[in-house]
Amino acid sequence: MPLHVEGRYSFAAPIQRVWETLLDPAAISGCMPGRERFEQIGPDEFEVTLKVKIGPVSGDGTARVTLLDQHEPVRYRMRVHGGGGIGMIDGAGDIELAGSGGVTMVTYRGDADVTGKVAAVGQRLLSASAKMMIGQFFKCMEGRLAAVEPRGAQ
């Protein structure tokens, strides 16, 4: 079944810092909800194993994440392909950054094809779960941005 996600997240940091954090492998690894394993397999390619738990439902899977079409610092594309026992996902999303006065608005829009058990029985909750995990990811990124003050500040 098709899964569409879109939304935005506002960061209280200048665009260049947000860009560097969003594309930093250590930050991506640290902020993926339920990450069990994270391995860099190419300059912009990662293999990620996640164990996701939402209430009584849990599942794990391994996906390949690729960062493409990077137009620093305003736009990149993320491709995700993989799955596990409860389903498979194949999709891509565009992430756009717009900075203004020390605030950066990140807008994302993605489409994926989800198959397997979770698609057959979980439609009711799929898009909301995806949104929740994206929200957790950005919130964690925001935390990292706040924790690491830029050099020269103060």
């Binding site: 009584p56 439902v57 849990s58 599942g59 026992g85 409860i86 058990k117 979770v118 029985v121 979980g122």
Partner: peptide
């Protein structure tokens, strides 16, 4: 009535 259907689908596996 929520947990057992999830277990039958193996979405929940306590």
């Amino acid at each position: 009535h929520s947990l057992i259907p999830l277990m039958k689908l193996r979405l929940a596996m306590p």
